[in-house]
Design a protein around this nucleic acid. Structure first.
Length: 364
DNA sequence: AAGGCGGGGTG
DNA sequence: CACCCAGCCTT
């Protein structure tokens, strides 16, 4: 804990800060679908979707997801395949597996009622310090901090906090600051207002200080340091992987797909057979050896790839050479694979990279 | 404390 | 290109 930072709070008049912030929020807040009611389940779903994901991206997913799984009971009883399909393209897929596991626990252990104590709600899978604070404050009106990237950026400027927000330990500094500033009357609006301010005014680069409702409370504005805060160290370099993928079609218009393992990258999503290339042989030969080894099938791949696809993740890049081939008398031993009709491919949850592959291959 | 984990928007 | 986004989990 960096107590020197906390002393900065004396620079802010908490009551006046709350009034200025909350008045602005009441006038300027966006009309978002998860703000239509205070159903803890819907707040929960929205908060999981919003982790590392922009509001504009989440909105259509949230509408469809709530339409399809409107209650704790509905999501608890849903098939994982359907839930994953509803999440397709949103990324960080462990979020939705954890969400469904946690919703099932709420359904069974809490009679379908989302718990409202810090200890109980924090014990749910996928619910960390931010999300527990968000659900408690927004759905139940409990004055708990909900410190996300927005709040750290905004408060680093307001209070001139120079702790590195990339460090996990820094979150506690901001939580302690929020505890001293939060509105006890309306913690829901207070927390959401800070995030709204971070999204609309107090942006990472070029903050719109002249439009800011709390600029008179802002140390960085007075000191002219708003463009130097927050302090955030850089992240690591990216790995680069070269893959080859096969779109294998039968005479009957069927296609071979396989399911990824339940742990790790893109867990449980469907994809086309593919292998990481060592660079020893040509991509085509390495892919054929993979298909013979893993599938025990002989394939005739076209000599040239039908597409070369690059897909960038947050921590690595895939370069995929896509080959097409015919299979006859498909009878694979590979248990996580299956043969599906071409028209049904899109009913399975695919990662975006393999959606790109199918987009190229389906018309070939 | 550090790294894995998606995908898209922005300058 | 790099950085960022209503973070959490594992090691």
């Amino acid at each position: 804990m960096n107590f020197s930072s906390l002393n900065q709070i004396e620079k802010v008049n908490a009551a006046q800060f709350q009034r200025d912030l909350l008045q602005w929020y009441e006038e300027e807040k966006r009309d978002l679908p998860w703000r239509k009611d205070k159903d803890p389940y819907k707040i929960w779903v929205s908060e999981i979707m919003l982790q590392q994901t922009r509001v504009d991206t989440v909105i259509p997913y949230f509408e469809r997801f709530i339409d399809q799984f409107p209650t704790v009971k509905a999501l608890a009883e849903a098939e994982e395949e359907d839930v994953l399909k509803a999440w397709e393209g949103l990324g960080y897929y462990s979020r939705v597996r954890n969400l469904q596991a946690a919703v099932r626990e709420v359904h069974e252990q809490y009679g379908g009622r989302v718990p409202h104590t810090k200890e109980e709600i924090s014990s749910l899978k996928g619910v960390g310090p931010y999300t527990s604070g968000a659900i408690l404050s927004i759905a139940y009106g409990v004055p708990e901090p909900a410190v996300d990237g927005n709040v750290m950026r905004v408060m680093s400027r307001i209070l001139s906090i120079w702790d590195d927000i990339a460090k996990a330990s820094s979150r506690k500094v901001f939580e302690e600051a929020i505890r001293q500033l939060i509105s006890e009357d309306d913690p829901s609006s207070f927390n959401q207002a800070l995030m709204e301010l971070g999204a609309l005014i107090c942006t990472p680069s070029s903050p719109a200080c002249l439009l800011c409702p709390v600029r008179e409370h802002c140390c960085a504005f007075h000191e002219g340091t708003m463009n130097e805060l927050p302090v955030k160290t850089k992240k690591k370099t990216m790995r680069h992987l070269h893959l080859a993928a096969a779109v294998l079609k039968t005479e009957m218009g069927e296609v071979v797909i396989q399911k990824r393992p339940p742990q790790g990258l893109l867990a449980n999503l469907w994809e086309f057979p593919n292998t990481e290339l060592s660079g020893i042989g040509s991509p085509k030969v390495e892919l054929e050896l993979f298909l013979k080894r893993e599938y025990e099938i002989e394939t005739k791949l076209k000599a040239e790839p039908i597409a070369k696809i690059q897909h960038v993740f947050s921590h690595l890049t895939w370069d995929i050479d896509v080959y097409e081939g015919r299979v006859t008398d498909y009878c694979s031993v590979k248990e996580n694979s299956r043969l599906v009709k071409a028209e049904e491919v899109e009913t399975y949850a695919f990662s975006v990279s393999h959606q790109k592959i199918w987009k190229k291959a389906k018309d070939e």
